[in-house]
Amino acid sequence: MNDASANGAILSTKGLTKNYPDGNVAALTDVNLSIPRGQYAAIVGPSGCGKSTLLNLLGALDEPTAGSVYFAGRSFAELGGMDQFRAQKLGFVFQSFYLLPILTARENVQIPMFEGTLSAAARAKRAAELLELVGMSHRAGHLPKQLSVGERQRVAIARALANNPELLLADEPTGNLDSKTAQEICGLFDQLHREQGMTIVLVTHDQNVANRAERIIAMRDGRVADDRLNKDGAR
């Protein structure tokens, strides 16, 4: 246990450090963060400052060189491993959507559900509900290439919600979108946060996107340079 769990943090890090062996890059140095349950946080900073590295460590996609990540005060090992954590607690959204090209929207949304206990019929039903939630019901049978980029990101968000995660991580989810579509996707995150109390941590370059979050964590050279609450955010 660590002290962060005492104040209800869903996610916290202690001395989190990542050095990439190739190139000997110190991508992340001694990051100590605590994200309370239900918070909507944005990570900002110049290119190469370690935002994606931090998000990947938070999402149990990579192992830190030093330090630890805790989910509700427990290490990934205590939760049954990184795979277990990702399968059950986490949803991940990417800049390039990463939908599987051979599958329709409704099939893409079902992919993470294979790790759950739902029957095939229940999976189809849940996928339909999630597509409804992100406003994509009318295009459920379309392949990714038949969708606009904004629509693809909506489907990807529905997919991230497939296993009822407690936490949503997004790495530049609006990076490939024009500003109008970006605002729509942000609206979706706002809605998830407001209506479902979803904890959201997103990385962005876009100040407009960051400003909608409750908290803005600014990074520089692998360290947290600034961390402040944003009283205008999440409305």
Partner: peptide
């Protein structure tokens, strides 16, 4: 990507 969106190694 499959791993990132929740698939375990075994899957």
């Amino acid at each position: 990507i499959l791993r990132a969106i929740g698939w375990r190694k075994s899957r």
